[in-house]
Design a protein around this nucleic acid. Structure first.
Lengths: 108, 108
DNA sequence: CAATTATATTATCAAGTGCTTATATAGTTG
DNA sequence: CAACTATATAAGCACTTGATAATATAATTG
């Protein structure tokens, strides 16, 4: 496979990770600040396994990092090496209202 | 649905259009210059219905324009209104070599 | 250690996707 | 108009995907 094809394949795969509504919303949340799984579950009002599986895909794709702190696992964005993602992040709407509506530490 | 959700949905849908290898390659080609369907079929070495169907999706998503000139239908990029796509286009590898390898007017 | 909380994993399934084959439409040319 | 070329559409199919329900793992706390 040529370099061109490999580059396009890699970009397509990364973009596919961003092309799901739930995952793109998670990314919009993490743009504001790092969060644990239960925060995201609360804010997005979906099931915990659903969020866990999406986070796993984002982690495999190198888009987020995880850090365990006692019983909570915190996820944060890791997009420094993907220039074209920065502009996407800039265009994402602010999630500050949704984050504030969510009682802090209601789960953790 | 809130404005935030609607915005994220719209972005996710656009990104999904770019998340396919064949479609992203078509976009990389059209970045260089407008092309007719048979040009793209020749360069990507896949079937004509396959390319036609991908082009239809890109057109529905407002990412490309089409213009008929006699028996050929030319497609071109239409991304002026999507800021975050510009940076993706910049990161796409150059297709000039592949375009030059393709005999001009071998089909049209 | 038992109970609780946070997260991950597995199995399952309906819905969607990309490609192919076959056929239809449309413009061109003799 | 008939033959040809360019493109679109439709049907079928293997494959993937996102969500759920159920279960497992791991850290915390009493």
């Amino acid at each position: 496979m040529s370099t061109v094809e490999a580059t396009i394949d890699a970009m397509a795969e990364t973009l596919r990770l961003l092309s799901d509504k739930t995952r793109l919303t998670i990314i919009a949340l993490l743009k504001e600040k790092e969060m644990c799984v239960c925060d995201i579950v609360d804010i997005l009002e979906t099931s915990q396994p659903n969020i866990s599986q999406h986070l796993k895909k984002l982690k495999m794709g190198g888009i987020v990092n995880e850090t365990r702190r006692s019983q909570w696992i915190y996820y944060s964005l890791n997009v420094a090496d993907k220039l074209y993602l920065t502009e996407i992040l800039n265009q994402l709407p602010s999630m500050r209202d949704k984050i504030n509506a969510h009682k802090p530490n209601s789960c953790c």
